[in-house]
Design a binder for these strands. Structure first.
Lengths: 229, 229
DNA sequence: ACCGTTTGTAACATGCTTGTAATATATTTC
DNA sequence: GAAATATATTACAAGCATGTTACAAACGGT
């Protein structure tokens, strides 16, 4: 679930400072010193955002950014440029390249983190998610609300995500492992039995209006959300 | 939230002069030399106003303005044309394009800033003028006043903007980060937890008439303004 | 320059959520 | 029918998200 940030910066002092700040802010970070290494990381790890130093040995940050924005695989990854003071005048050129934001050195860790979050927020599709309905059970992703026959259903965050996933993928069995991936995130280390507990909590919240029957156990396989009994 | 002005001007001397004047007047500015670069900046930064030179290399200012007023994404951005003396006769044509004002070279920085402010003032109140009411809670953007059941509610500026935003976007969850973007502005970098404090202040001001229940916490997601409990 | 107000942050308090383990119940297998 | 296996249920403590308060810096008007 944690976003991965790739930092491309040749000065090791800045690299360490930034890495430390990002890790503390809950990001997963990878740091490289030049474009070549960075390219390898991008292909292997598919980072969610790239922090790119303006001046780099070998291929410059500007050229590298241009190349990234041309390649199909990396075009959509947001880029934040790290520039020194005197380089500010070239901002236009950067924006023309499709760079998403700039941070001018020296910068505070807080500002950097805030800008990263802002860019990630803007990059994320502000989904026009429509409410889902099944047999009088409504789930509205926008208002983050669930109602059964008009009356509100109280759900914890995990149960909400789980129900949301189930309702958008009905009539299909998911193993506990798959549910951990889909509902919790790709890189979590949790007991598979824990899924049972959350299934229980979800059913408990739905039982008042009889909607718990929609959450079905498939013995030996996992769970399924289905209208048919 | 400082307004961002995009300047499109091919003469670098004028570009620097105007940039300096605008920065000193508290605007955030981006300058480009031609229409192609400007287009990129518009898409990235969504400036609040565009200063457009009448004569430009490549696509002329007139043609560029026409295109901007045709595109959905840029139609609403006000445009001020920079013209030399002899070109005044064409003003009529320009106003037909939907250009908002003209400034004739040579102009004083003071005059330019004044015109920009005037245009922004005229453009800003776009439909967000009417009072909003929810369950006896009134917010009037014009008089900048809030009343609950007839009696006035004391709010700080930030709380007012926040309530205004909430009341015009009800039944929808906003994360702390989104609220920072929407209520504080795009270029401000503040701790997300600060949102909590302002939520608290807003609730405190509304509690006297029981309207604090409209500001709802959605655990793990953010806050929501909603009539329903 | 002064004073009251507003604002952002830190620190502390509180309540909910969550993952796990332990126990109970159901289903299959032999 | 007993053992083996799979799922259901419950209880709980540790962690985490949010609520709340206090305070100092910044701001705005005079």
């Amino acid at each position: 679930m944690a976003d991965t940030i790739l930092l491309v910066e040749d000065e090791s002092a800045i690299r360490e400072m930034v890495t430390f700040a990002l890790e503390r802010a809950g990001f997963s970070t990878v740091a490289t010193a030049d474009a070549a290494q960075a390219q390898a990381v991008i292909e292997r790890k598919a980072p969610n955002l790239i922090l790119l130093d303006w001046m780099l040995p070998g291929l410059s940050g500007v050229d590298f950014a241009r190349r990234l924005k041309k390649e199909e695989g990396s075009r959509k990854i947001p880029i934040i440029m790290l520039t020194a003071r005197g380089e500010e005048m070239d901002k236009v050129r950067g924006f023309e390249l499709g760079v998403d934001d700039y941070v001018t050195k020296p910068f505070s860790p807080r500002e950097l983190v805030a800008r990263i979050k802002a860019v990630l927020r803007r990059a994320a599709p502000e989904g026009e998610e429509k409410p889902i309905e099944v047999e009088g059970l409504w789930l509205d992703p926008v208002s983050h609300r669930v109602t059964a026959g008009g009356t509100p259903v109280e759900l914890g965050p995990t149960e909400f995500r789980m129900l949301h996933f189930f309702m958008s993928h009905p009539e299909r069995v998911y193993s506990r492992g798959q549910l951990l991936d889909k509902v919790w995130g790709n890189d979590v280390y949790i007991e598979e039995r824990t899924v049972d507990v959350h299934i229980r909590r979800l059913r408990k919240a739905l039982v008042a209006h009889g909607h718990d029957r929609l959450i079905q156990t498939v013995r030996g396989a996992g769970y399924r959300f289905s209208v048919r009994s």
